[in-house]
Design a protein around this nucleic acid. Structure first.
Lengths: 193, 193
DNA sequence: TGAATTTTGTGACAAATGTCAATTGAATTC
DNA sequence: GAATTCAATTGACATTTGTCACAAAATTCA
């Protein structure tokens, strides 16, 4: 089994204990893709009909508001990324997913996921758990966006996802936190980070 | 079948087509509760082990930050409310759910929901769909909190949930939008609403 | 390497929002 | 129905943040 698939298997094992053979159903459906820095995994307007497990690399999810990009999420190796609304409701995506580093992902189409759910109920549970995880992430994001002043938002990010600050250009972080680049610049100068 | 249960059945029919008899499994597990204005359905620190379908009335979900209440959601009749994190992960709730009007709800414990999933797979799908719905709601909330100036936040709320503005005290709306009461007051004066 | 481009940082100022205090208005209670 | 409490509004001012302009630094690419 190639490394990327192994990583995915291991990731799932951390989400739910899977009996022998449950994962093997997936093998025929999984696809390994290489995405270069700057390339898009999903573009606005496309239907995003897959989820991607990131074996290696880093992505950002963003959408356009009045012509400017607003980042909503950074996804790094050993996690799953997708344009959620598009994937779930089979509608064109409003979101873009772009690689911030050269990346390798394992993709699974919604169609094939549906087949897997039919073959083994554990995959339904996987789907449920991943959805719940996404809920918690979004809930945390909503909390950190409301009422926190810019400094605290930055500190929270520093606490919760310190790697992001190392690996993501400042302009993208600013947009993620909902502050201007300049404000974030000044905050960083003050924090001494 | 009493009215509240009927309402719940009808609500579910809108979420997923349920075959004859699928809903009837639930009857033995559902409980109808009356909550007076001001009372709490869930309090911080408790484990929230149930979801509640609101047949009648209105609730707010809020948490405490440095002693002040921050509202994260308003839930009205014909929708479902719960302290999501607590329900899913069986941990003490950080959220409070309080009735803003005299209300009647139909509750279902997580324990019983699990039983129902065992008896009929459609309930697993119900759970999945409701979780996805919650994701979309949270995603929308995160979007409206980030970068929108106060005026636009208010306009968006006016567009998306006009009833809330009629039925919820202004102070609670301000906290929901992430602005001070005073600022919201001034915005309302300007908008002429 | 060196030029061009992009990203980041800084200063000056304007706009938006928060805070505090006082007032008005509405709801509740006795 | 008057008194009391609570909620909402308004004014004055301080603080935060955004915007614009430009400089410095880093990165990209020929």
């Amino acid at each position: 089994m190639i490394n990327e698939i192994k990583n995915f298997k291991q990731y799932l094992a951390g989400v739910i204990p899977m009996g022998e053979g449950s994962f093997e159903i997936a093998l025929q459906y999984l696809k390994v893709e290489t995405i270069e820095k700057g390339e898009h995994l999903v573009k606005e307007g496309q239907a995003c009909n897959k989820v991607a497990f990131i074996s290696n690399g880093l992505f950002r999810i963003y959408y356009l508001k009045d012509g400017t990009e607003i980042n909503t999420c950074f996804c790094k190796e050993n996690s799953i990324t997708s344009a959620f609304d598009s994937f779930v409701n089979q509608v064109p995506s409003k979101e873009n997913i772009q690689a911030l580093e050269d990346s390798v992902v394992v993709t699974l189409s919604s169609e094939n996921l549906a087949k897997m759910v039919g073959e083994n109920a554990v995959w339904q549970t996987v789907r449920q758990l991943l959805t719940e995880k996404e809920c918690l992430r979004l809930s945390g994001r909503a909390t950190s966006l409301s009422f926190e002043p810019a400094l605290e938002k930055y500190r929270n990010l520093l606490r919760d996802q310190p790697e992001i600050i190392q690996r993501v250009p400042v302009q993208h972080i600013a947009s993620y936190l909902g502050v201007s680049r300049e404000t974030l610049s000044r905050i960083r100068a003050r924090v001494g980070e």
